[in-house]
């Protein structure tokens, strides 16, 4: 028998991260809208926010747009969203 080595990272343990708890309710919650910078991303998120308002009565909206769709969100924006938002919606995949 010969072992053929796994070329993927599946056996590599991912970096430890704790998933955020599911919010108990969205009524009055501050929602983050993170557009990735691609065309119409924030316009799409604004429509999503309209639905969230109508169906779940969400509260304040916090908007951020990535300067580069290919890079992570700037650390300051990510920190701000994490600090103030109950949940964040991000878009758009083209």
């Amino acid at each position: 028998m010969t072992r053929i080595l796994d070329p993927t990272l599946r056996a590599t343990p991912p970096r430890a991260a704790t998933g955020a708890a599911r919010p108990a309710l969205l009524s009055g919650a501050t929602i983050g809208l993170l557009a990735n910078g691609k065309t119409h991303g924030m316009a799409f998120l604004d429509r999503v926010a309209e639905h969230l308002r109508a169906r779940h009565g969400v509260g304040e909206l916090l908007r951020a747009t990535k300067p580069n769709a290919s890079a992570p969100a700037p650390a300051d924006d990510a920190a701000l969203l994490a600090k103030h938002c109950t949940a964040v919606v991000t878009a758009i995949g083209d």
Partner: peptide, 26 residues
Amino acid sequence: MPATTHPGIDVDDAWQAIEACFAQKW
């Protein structure tokens, strides 16, 4: 039993190995 502890799959011969890499989508 192969000596390595690196993750992977065990095969009988090279031809099986080539086909196994396809099956694993590698």
